[in-house]
Design a protein around this nucleic acid. Structure first.
Length: 876
RNA sequence: GGGCAUUUAGCUCAGUUGGUUAGAGCGCUACAUUGACAUUGUAGAGGUCACAGAUUCGAAUUCUGUAUUGCCCA
């Protein structure tokens, strides 16, 4: 057997993933075991894996693999989201490249193209998840537009409508005048842009040469003005209460209304109100019962309400009106101004707030249980700080606009039979709709062609809010949902806490009567070294697939997890993957070392080996216990770091060095078996983090040819009894070894020259580890002494003194220098302690235990100083 | 503008109810290297815990204010 010195992940990762799939380890069926369910946050069906997915899914895989080893029935459900806007935009773009416009196609023809695109690109991302090792039950893969899923979404809409919670109303949407569709808030990018603030004066009606001046960034909308608003307590404008003003250029009379919404400090303190073209103005309009005048066409040109500007583009109209206002003496001044402008993510067009009829879900009542049960911890947030913003959002929850002017998605099951606002019915099929419409309208002769279905689809989130239920067909059958629901942990980004997490909790209570998951782990945002969010447009995101090719999937997994405490951003650096790869290499070489040993089954075990084994077993137990606590709190990077140090420091640097036979010598069978056993425990602990490599070594280290022997389904190690004293002694032992190494190094005594160590042992001296000490320090003997040994290097650890007699050459000055330095350190320490102890208020107020501790510190330091001073004297 | 966070070593972060002269990983520096591993080993340096007050015998930790950076909402 030839094992390469460098671990090469590429040759083995695909092999093991195929093996896992072939043996169905990731498949889950309901049984007697406790279920551990995770539903994947479904990525966009046509998306490709980016670093955010890499992080998110690595975390899920770690949790799922650990649960599987803990004996739970682990079920990780994968799937994709139809992502209505993003996908439709991509399809429209592709059609345009072929010279086809969406408006030239029928709905069915367009959907044909969309499905074609979905089948072509859909699922790429799922294949990529396999590369990182994701242990999903692939037989359960779901898509939000699958027939059964689609059905459930439609049923939900109808159900909520029948409950009186869905209604139709006018609302201001983010309108993209280029794409001719409404956009959701998250598709609008707000950026600061330079513009002008126009100060325009309006004449007061029925008064002579009396004016008020407003400040606006959008003079082109003055044709839509239907009021002026001032602050009710603004003393500058008391005389205007109850009056009217005239719109410049056209002279139309509008009321002056009072509202404390107005910011008195901003501009002139007077606000023009254009209810049709600004969200805040719209609210003011509703509040004060103002007229709404829409002056734009859908494409952003002015309509017949725009008077002489009719047909002009909104930005041309702005210039024209600027000129006209100036010429007519209405423009007081302009000033440079920077404000936030919303632009469409897709077309970069400036968003126009626009009024339109939309479908809404009434939220207040639905949200209550979802709010209560997060606040009382039924659903636990990790980290809990996110509860604050969750509460804030839920307490002020607004009705949810669930319609989108798109074709790709779940079509709204509403059917119109006339022009009136209420001339519609909600029904699953055309024939049901026709029946209902005949009744509602009283027109028994109504025909199929007299009704037409709403063209719009639902917001994507209106399907994904059912995800934890619908992946188990839970709206229709109890068969699986009653076993797997509620799921255990949800791992997602805080950005979608409102869009998705909150709404899933709402749907969970509405349709299952309980929350969809017990824990929500919020990951951070992956950023580059400069702290910028990774994005395609910036081109600062490495391709996870390439990273995995370079560093191995295990290496990248470790790299990502090393620096990602829950809820904190993750400043990504390729160096981290390098660290992960180096770790994998370290493990590989530890394995190679054990394989290189010649084992003599019946040889006597060295005392040092026996000591090392007991200690290492205790360390493993200690880490296992820590891991339980860390996983319970989702402190994954700490869990990984603890494991990392267990392997690198404890196992490789201390344990293996202690048991390693001298060159050319054999190892006894007892130690070898114990080492293999320890190695196997370590592989189990590592497996959730580094599944591929651990599975590989697991199969080398023992005969695991039967499918039932795979590591990924091996039982998690049980925590044994922990001997705390032993662990403490070993820490002292480590210090001791370190001191001896220092003496060797500072005096250039090579390791091969054996030394004699004299010990004046005190409390805490690790006598039981002497054999280990002899081995690691290459001592010829350890001599007990009660006096200081002349002509020797010395050091103190705890209450024990150690001496190593000089050899031939000694640098007395260097030794003195070292002792001086230590005396300085101890004196400083003593001063601080004595300062406390001489403070009467400390002695009388502090708890006894603390005072006793301080006294002990004092006496330790004093005796240490005695020894050091004596040594100094000794050196002359 | 409102709300919520953040600030500890060069970098990324721990630091549980106040009680060792504040820890880890990476990086850095020096030295080492025929026998697992240079994707390595041994050792070392490095911090006024953002700032200013307050409470306390005692504050990185609690309180107040200021600054900083970031997120969410408007």
């Amino acid at each position: 057997m030839e094992l390469p010195t460098i671990y090469d992940p590429n040759t083995i990762e695909d092999k093991w993933y195929a093996y896992w799939l072939e043996n169905g380890y990731f498949q889950s069926k309901p049984d007697d075991r406790e279920a551990y369910t995770v539903v994947i946050p479904p990525p966009n069906v046509t998306g490709v894996l980016h670093m955010g997915h890499m992080l998110n899914n690595t975390i899920q895989d770690v949790l799922v693999r650990r649960a599987r080893m803990l004996g739970k029935n682990a079920c990780w459900v994968p799937g994709t989201d139809h992502a209505s806007i993003a996908t439709e935009a991509k399809v429209v773009h592709r059609l345009r490249e072929k010279g086809i416009r969406k408006s030239d196609l029928t709905r069915d023809a367009f959907l044909g193209h969309a499905w074609e695109w979905t089948h072509e690109h859909g699922g790429i991302i799922l294949e990529q998840l396999k590369k990182l090792g994701a242990s999903c039950d692939w037989d359960r893969t779901r898509f939000t537009m699958d027939e059964a899923y689609y059905d459930g979404v439609i049923d939900t809409f109808i159900d909520l409508f029948n409950k009186g919670l869905i209604y139709r109303d006018v609302r201001m949407v983010n309108w993209d005048p280029v794409a001719l569709t409404a956009l959701s808030d998250e598709e609008v990018i707000h950026k600061e842009e330079h513009g002008l603030l126009y100060h325009v004066r309006y004449a007061i009606a029925d008064a002579e040469d009396e004016w008020l001046t407003i400040a606006t960034t959008r003079p082109e909308t003055i044709m839509g003005d239907t009021a002026i608003c001032i602050h009710p307590e603004d003393e500058r404008f008391v005389h205007l209460h109850g009056k009217e003003a005239c719109v410049p250029l056209i002279g139309r009379r509008i009321p002056i209304v009072l509202d404390d919404y107005v910011d008195r400090e901003f501009g002139t303190g007077c606000l023009k109100v254009t209810p049709a073209h600004d969200v805040n103005d719209y609210d003011l309009g509703k509040k004060h019962d103002l007229e709404t005048i829409d002056i734009f066409h859908a494409n952003g040109t002015l309509n017949e309400q725009g008077g002489s500007y009719e047909g002009m583009d909104r930005f041309d109209a702005r210039k024209a009106i600027h000129k006209d206002l100036e010429e007519a003496g209405f423009l007081v001044k302009t000033e440079d101004y920077t404000n936030k402008v919303g632009r469409s993510e897709r077309t970069d067009a400036v968003i126009e707030p626009r009024l339109s009829l939309q479908w809404f879900l009434s939220m207040k009542e639905l949200a209550q249980p979802a709010l209560d049960h997060v606040m009382d911890g039924t659903v636990a947030f990790h980290p809990p700080k996110f509860k604050n913003s969750y509460r804030h959002w839920m307490e002020n929850v607004k009705d949810w606009c669930v319609s989108r002017q798109l074709w790709w998605g779940h079509r709204i099951p509403a059917w119109f039979y006339g022009e009136g606002k209420d001339a519609f019915v909600v029904a699953k099929t055309a024939s049901e709709a026709l029946d209902a419409a005949r009744i509602k309208s009283g027109r028994a002769d109504m025909q199929r062609e007299d009704i037409r279905q709403d063209e719009d689809v639902m917001d994507t989130w209106f399907s994904s809010w059912l995800w934890p239920i619908q992946v188990f067909d839970g709206l229709k059958t109890e068969e699986e949902v009653s076993y797997y629901y509620p799921t255990a942990d949800l791992v997602t980004a805080p950005e979608i806490m409102f869009f998705w997490v909150a709404r899933m909790i709402i749907a969970g209570y509405e349709y299952r009567g309980e929350a969809p998951f017990k824990n929500v782990y919020y990951t951070g945002i992956v950023r580059d070294k400069q702290g910028r969010k990774m994005s395609k447009s910036l081109g600062n995101s490495p391709d996870p697939i390439e990273l995995m090719n370079q560093y191995g999937a295990d290496g990248v997994r470790v790299g990502m997890l090393l620096t990602s405490p829950a809820g904190n951003d993750l400043p990504f650096d390729e160096k981290l993957c390098e660290q992960g790869r180096n770790f994998a290499n370290k493990i590989w070489n530890a394995f190679r070392l054990t394989q290189s040993w010649e084992v003599e089954q019946d040889a006597a075990q060295r005392d040092s080996s026996a000591q090392a084994i007991v200690w290492m077993q205790n360390r493993v137990n200690e880490v296992l216990m820590e891991l339980d606590a860390q996983f319970a709190e989702f402190r994954l990077s700490e869990a990984l770091m603890g494991t990392y140090r267990l392997v690198w420091d404890d196992f490789c640097s201390w344990y293996l060095e202690l048991v390693k036979p001298a060159y050319g010598q054999a190892l006894d069978g007892k130690t070898y078996d114990a080492t293999v056993e320890l190695f196997e425990s370590i592989l189990k602990i590592l497996h959730p983090f580094m599944p591929f490599q651990t599975e590989e070594i697991w199969h080398w280290i023992g005969d695991r040819s039967a499918p039932a022997d795979a590591l990924c389904i091996a039982p998690w190690p049980k925590v044994g009894v922990i001997d705390q004293d032993l662990l403490t002694h070993f820490e002292t032992f480590k210090q001791l070894v370190s001191e001896v190494r220092n003496v060797r190094k500072e005096n250039q005594i090579p390791h091969r020259d054996a030394l004699v160590l004299h010990v004046d042992s005190g409390e805490g001296y690790p006598a039981a580890l002497e054999a280990a000490l002899i081995k690691l320090c290459n001592l010829s003997s350890i001599e007990q002494t009660k006096e200081k040994v002349p002509n020797s290097f010395g050091f103190l650890i705890g209450r024990s003194s150690f001496f190593i007699p000089f050899g031939d050459a000694v640098d007395a000055d260097a030794e003195k220098e070292k002792i001086h330095k230590e005396i300085q350190h101890v004196t400083g320490f003593l001063k601080a302690v004595q300062g406390k102890l001489s403070n009467e208020r400390f002695v009388s107020n502090a708890p006894d235990a603390v005072v006793v501790m301080e006294r002990k510190k004092e006496s330790d330091a004093l005796s240490k100083l005695d020894v050091l001073n004596a040594k100094l004297k000794d050196l002359g």
